[in-house]
Computed example of a mutant assay.
Amino acid sequence: MRNILKEWQAEIRRTLNGNPVSLPEWVPRLAEGNDPGYFTPDSAVWTVHGSMSTIVAGIRALLMQTLHPGVLAGVREHSHYREDPLGRLAHTIRWIMTVTYGSTAAAREASDWVLRLHEQVRGEYVDGHGQVRTYYANDPELLRWVHIAFTDAFLETHKIWGGPIPGGPDAYVREWAQAGRLMGAEAPPVSEAEMKKQLDSWFDAGDLRFDDAVKETVDFIRNPPLHPMLKPGYRVLFAAAVSSLEPKYRELLRLQPARLGPLPLPVQLATHVTLGVVHLALGRQAPSEQAARRRLRRLGYEG
């Protein structure tokens, strides 16, 4: 039984870190730097991003991002998400954790690195109105969609499966707007109400669409090539992400809350249990946060 548990823990670490045993090289480097960074332990960002609800949030953000045809075209045509989905996940986690816990120099460096990768991501897509348009991954408008879909996902899932947020939801949206600015997003929202208004503006304008490409991508997100030991838990987390979506976006994605015949399944409770088990496997405090706290202690920061 102990060997099975160790194997399961190793597979979780492999999925999230890319390595079942050692930490990625960038994690200890978060202890380096000469300032506290954009966010500190008493911030809303540390609270939300330190929660296990981020695992559900990641799935929800991917589902939402598929609805913008320009963003989806860039992912499908220029990334290797099918061949190496865990590699793409590792890159995303690296950027999030570095901006959250790193020094300001580390956060800027990580964001600039992503922007350089985006420079070659260009092409054409059919928009929600049937018009052929060009896309460019560093287009501020596309970056704003990605930023808002991310922010909305992390905030909403934390409301359900996390705890209190210092300063409330507005504080998280306002603080994480800094990440949007680092990535070149145009006018990132600074309050929850503004975020919802901007998010719905794409929907109301008919800029979002569902087509075969969205269906294929959603099917991949629903059933990624995970180790068999992780699949039962992932099914719960996927159902959680679907249940957390606003009904109009869930309907646009052609997704339904999990049911057993006419009865809804207790997804919220099952997700609490699943996230609790994952938390036990990963430990009380993420290595990224531990490294950041070492930097803060070195700098004499109290908070």
Rank of each mutant, 00 (worst) to 15 (best):
A292C: 08
P69I: 01
G180T: 09
E32V: 00
V48S: 05
L62N: 08
L265D: 02
P140F: 14
E124T: 15
E175F: 05
S22N: 13
L260Y: 13
R14C: 10
L252G: 02
A107C: 09
G168I: 04
H129I: 06
P262E: 11
Y38F: 15
S111Q: 08
R294G: 05
H158S: 00
M1S: 12
I221A: 03
E25H: 14
I160V: 15
P287M: 07
R76S: 09
L63T: 10
G233F: 10
M52V: 05
R254C: 04
P164Y: 04
A105D: 14
L230M: 11
N17P: 00
T134P: 00
G102I: 07
R174L: 03
G168A: 04
P24H: 08
L253Y: 07
P247L: 06
E251F: 06
V21F: 13
I221Q: 01
E25G: 14
R144F: 09
E7F: 15
L115R: 15
S79W: 11
V56K: 02
V21M: 02
R116I: 13
R88Q: 14
L16A: 09
A149I: 07
K196A: 15
S22E: 15
P247R: 07
Q290D: 04
A291W: 09
A193E: 15
V146P: 05
F39D: 02
A187K: 12
Q198R: 12
E302D: 12
Y125Q: 04
D207A: 14
T54C: 08
D35V: 02
S43P: 08
G74D: 11
D219N: 12
S111L: 07
F210Y: 15
I165P: 00
N17C: 10
D139T: 07
T151V: 15
G70H: 06
G276I: 07
A106S: 12
T271D: 02
P247M: 06
R14Y: 15
